[in-house]
Design a protein around this nucleic acid. Sequence first.
DNA 1: TTCAATTAGTGGCATATGCCACTTTCACGA
DNA 2: TCGTGAAAGTGGCATATGCCACTAATTGAA
Lengths: 151, 151
Amino acid sequence: MTKATLPGLTLCNNATLRRAGRKLGRFYDDVLAPSGLKGTQYGLLYQIHIGSEPAMGAIAEALIMDLSALGHTLKPLIRDGYVEAFADKDDRRVKRVRLTPQGGLKLNEATKLWTIAQQRFEAMVGKDQAAKLRAALDAIAALDFDMPPAR
Amino acid sequence: MTKATLPGLTLCNNATLRRAGRKLGRFYDDVLAPSGLKGTQYGLLYQIHIGSEPAMGAIAEALIMDLSALGHTLKPLIRDGYVEAFADKDDRRVKRVRLTPQGGLKLNEATKLWTIAQQRFEAMVGKDQAAKLRAALDAIAALDFDMPPAR
DNA sequence: TTCAATTAGTGGCATATGCCACTTTCACGA
DNA sequence: TCGTGAAAGTGGCATATGCCACTAATTGAA
């Protein structure tokens, strides 16, 4: 009973997902550490990168993240000069963001590290196993949890 | 291109896991809301419940969570009277925790809600699919990410 | 044109997590 | 027995996320 301190190997899908998330998150964070970015920040820079000066709302939707949470997460990246925001020309309510030249460089730098983490992980679980896992997770992300509260 | 704003369906295992985690987390949180507990707190109370007055370190290990993070997460639960801590009789460095009677009641109350969330989720993805997913996630949680930094 | 409803963000507050620097206890070997 | 190093937590600081109450800008209908 030394390390098998897991009597009830939680049947909770949410708890299991979070636990694996903490573990994997730390791994990616460790590998990305030399770049000074956290896994989340890397993902956010990437998302901005592949978008066309995306609006905050668009990013939040793509990442299935609360809009205000995105705003908070974006702050350190703007503060450090990796991202810059500007108002949309046609709708001043909309705030768009883009990477600064510095942000672009940082993304490239971090991508090299990310590749290492990604390869190391897939070498352990298998490339297809990883792909299947991502597919399953994307399926969850696409689920429509609703109806219950009597519409 | 309205809702398919996901050009690069992220290949990053970490980002995919986090995204699904946010989605699922909100679902469980919503269903658990009437109890006043968050999904994480419910999981923590449960973990304490199934343990024998577990030491903080044991809980942290089981949940693959940083010890200090556990300490922080535990605070609101202690503040609200659901959990109480006490020093181990033989080793004063060790701090053990247990549910208070109130905590036990709250856990029962929340478990009813949790069951609903769990069932609703599994009704959507399938019971075996969910089990497979948990198995895959547990496998990740059990991985040994090491060696690289030249030991 | 005017005003109510809607949309996009912001700020404040609270929890979730980590890392690091300490402090307190123990365990052990000299 | 003393002193050094390991083990278990705590506190502070920073990011990650959410919800709620608001504000600013738009859109639409009367």
